[in-house]
Amino acid sequence: MIIKKIKTTAKDLLTDGSVSLIIGYGINGPGDVTPVFIKDPDDVEKLVWNDQCYYNLIRYLSDRDFIEQNNGSIGIIIKGCDQKSLKVLLSESQVNRDKIKVIGVTCKGLMDSDGNVLAKCEACDVVYPDKDFCDVIIGEEVKKKEKEKDFSDIDEIDSMDLPDRKKFWDNFFERCLRCYACRNICPLCYCKECIMDQHNPQWVLPSASVVGNRLFHIVRAYHLTGRCVDCGECERVCPIGMPLRKINRKIIKVVKERFDFESGKDQEQKSPLTRYRENDSEDFII
């Protein structure tokens, strides 16, 4: 049983003092899986593991205030997809690998409330976390899913006429509240002062207008270039149901096709925006 192993591992790590905190999944009420923070070995019973462990717990590792408050070593439970976020953070020197214990758990895909596998899990290729990356691995080894990247959802939008595409997105930009949930949930949005909030100079209109919102979403997407690992958290938390993954995946597609780059593969890899090839495509240049 996976959950049993998670609990014993957590208990062991806390007991032998190798970590002072475990971040994992607990339950808040029926059907409400939520992050839990365990400091007492006796509390490991609060941990759960099921197909509703949506939350990307890596978010906590890039939260400066959280890390400051929990100064000791942290044990963290991750799914295969979360591991990619962590690798990106490591490549950007945002996490001290020595101070975390990574407990990788096999994940066969999350389900929505209707019992369907999430779309992002359909697209996922790291069911089984990397052995040489995690400190502990729980769950049986599953063969890596080898499949062609499917970007048909993006192609669909790309194939629209320009005005239709504009309409499609403007429909969401008209409703976007600028609540910044998408930004706040993103494990890779760790700036001390977000560029969207800066006044001097003010890059992006702060008001929730179509113009301002469009700019906000372009900048958000641009800032995820070569970084977003499609964990889908932004889309999950968006109160107006904006298909944010369709934006992120556009970038993922371009980066893959043009720069032959996939984020979150390796903690040593450098952002494609800080690398170049002399023969990079330049068909857009006059």
Binding site: I218, A221, Y222, T225, K250, I251, V254, V255, R258, F259, P272, L273, R275, Y276, D280, S281, E282, F284
Partner: peptide
Amino acid sequence: RRMLILKNL
């Protein structure tokens, strides 16, 4: 590279 991304977006 940067402008290629921008153009696409």
